[in-house]
Nucleic acid binder design. Structure first.
Lengths: 145, 145
DNA sequence: TTGACAACTTAGGTACTCCTAACTATAATT
DNA sequence: AATTATAGTTAGGAGTACCTAAGTTGTCAA
């Protein structure tokens, strides 16, 4: 069972971008990856070579890019981390979505599974409090006045 | 009024280490900086040159390192960010201190002032709830069972 | 005062990530 | 089928951040 080799923040970003493009367009084209990440095309070529070398993407020169099984698993983990962090920022802290997204993009590379798990549980706890009528996030808003 | 130039995560780490060493030992010696960050000495020399070029430390070859006014201000900001994040992890999420410290070291470079401000307010809110007898962190613990 | 030792620097090298400019392959159009 | 536009690649280069090995400085002790 392949234990996931630690990736650099940059490669995680590529993987995540491919994941989202596959979910949206079925395939990931180099140009779209470049655009999604705000990098030039040659940077994508290099990154694909690197990810292919780690067995995370299927890549042939001039071909389309697809995630391997391992790549999809890893990308899913990263995307979920992102989602957890962003949700926490928005739903608990009440940060605006723009800021939350930017912050989550960076923080997703910094927080390990243990912290993320706790963060998810906490956000769920806060959301549940809304249904219970306790609305802790609302209390926090009032506290901030 | 000098607006703080964005530093790399690495340079922020050096600045923070010097800040803590100055607070502890009055001065920062290269060897101790290297040890604190787990890097080799030549890495420190290079970093000091870079920080000196940005006007954040006073550095002369073979001399002791001290923070400039601007450097102390910046280092203080970073150290405070670290403190805020770590406190949140421990006091709100209930993460163990070891893990919290490691995570905070990384996250401090990822979170901007807006998010950190909210995070601080939220941690204060949770702490206050403990005094009120509502103890939201305690409720969260129970929720996790 | 002269070693000897610790601290520091220089030199040289690797890895990563990005860039621009120039070239090549693919696919669409006519 | 030839042309042309688009996508992708190679080549070459820059900046950051590390490292080891080798040389330099400074200080303290005999």
């Amino acid at each position: 069972m392949a234990r996931s080799i630690p990736l650099t923040a940059s490669l995680e970003d590529y993987l995540e971008a491919i994941f989202h493009l596959e979910n949206k367009d079925k395939v990931a084209r180099g140009k779209d990856i470049a655009e999604a990440l705000g990098v030039a095309q040659p940077s994508v070529t290099g990154a694909m070579r690197s990810l292919a070398g780690k067995g995370l993407v299927n890549y042939e020169p001039y071909g389309l890019v697809t995630l391997t099984e391992a790549g999809r698993r890893e990308a899913g983990r990263i995307a979920e981390k992102h989602r957890i962090i962003e949700s926490f920022f928005v739903q608990v802290l009440g940060v605006d979505i723009e800021t939350a997204q930017r912050a989550a993009c960076k923080a997703e590379h910094a927080l390990g599974p243990a912290v993320c798990e706790r963060l998810l549980a906490f956000t769920n706890f806060i959301e549940k409090s809304k249904q219970d009528g306790r609305d802790i996030a609302g209390q926090f808003e009032a506290f901030c006045e």
